[in-house]
Design a protein around this nucleic acid. Structure first.
Length: 171
DNA sequence: TAGGCCATCTGGTCCT
DNA sequence: AGGACCAGATGGCCTA
């Protein structure tokens, strides 16, 4: 875990402990000052961001600190889930430098390219595509029949094909 | 050492 | 009302 993040979390926890034992309240003002660090650092910048203007104007009370810790934890869990999803995506994307972990942006970019490639491949297998071995019936259609049997599935097949085409056009 | 990438904190906003 | 989501800010780690 990151040092700064850990120390910040510890600070919040210490604040709470301090509130529960008033005799030990020593550095709360100093701690509160740290809440305004962003604002101070951004002073004088021509393009002060809206986010930095949103920093707390009043010191956090105990109830606020408790809610903050809880929502921080939820946010961590959410980001962990997001990262797990990224990892799952990495594992299904073929890429050259397998020894090097893909960054998030690389993962998304390669995934998009991979999907486009697979879509193009499927389209080439569609019933309309040329296939001399099967007298004009595409491999895609053959595969579809293997999966779905010989029953009349024209409507379903047409729907599937339309979805792929519209997806392709949208990409 | 600069720059890229990342985890975390945070406050605002959206959604249920 | 409370949780989920979003995006800015920050600092640590790593690599070229």
């Amino acid at each position: 875990m990151k040092t700064k993040a850990r120390s910040t979390r510890r600070k919040l926890e210490i604040d709470l402990e301090d509130e529960e034992s008033p005799a030990q309240q020593t550095s709360s003002e100093d701690d509160n000052d740290k809440c305004y660090v962003y604002k101070e650092k951004n002073k004088g910048k021509s393009q002060e961001s809206a986010k930095s203007r949103r920093r707390r104007q009043t010191p956090p009370d105990k109830e606020h600190s408790v809610r903050r810790l809880e929502s921080n934890e939820r946010e961590r869990q959410r980001m962990h889930k997001l990262n797990n999803a990224f990892q799952a995506l990495r594992e299904v994307i073929p890429h050259v430098r397998a020894e090097k972990k893909l960054s998030k942006i690389e993962t998304l970019t390669l995934a998009k390219n991979y999907i486009n490639t697979l879509t193009a491949t499927i389209l080439n297998m569609s019933p309309g595509a040329q296939d001399t071995d099967t007298g004009g019936v595409g491999k895609f259609y053959q595969h579809y029949q293997q999966q779905h049997g010989e029953e009349d599935n024209d409507e379903h097949l047409q729907k599937y094909s339309t979805q792929i085409h519209s997806f392709r056009q949208g990409s």
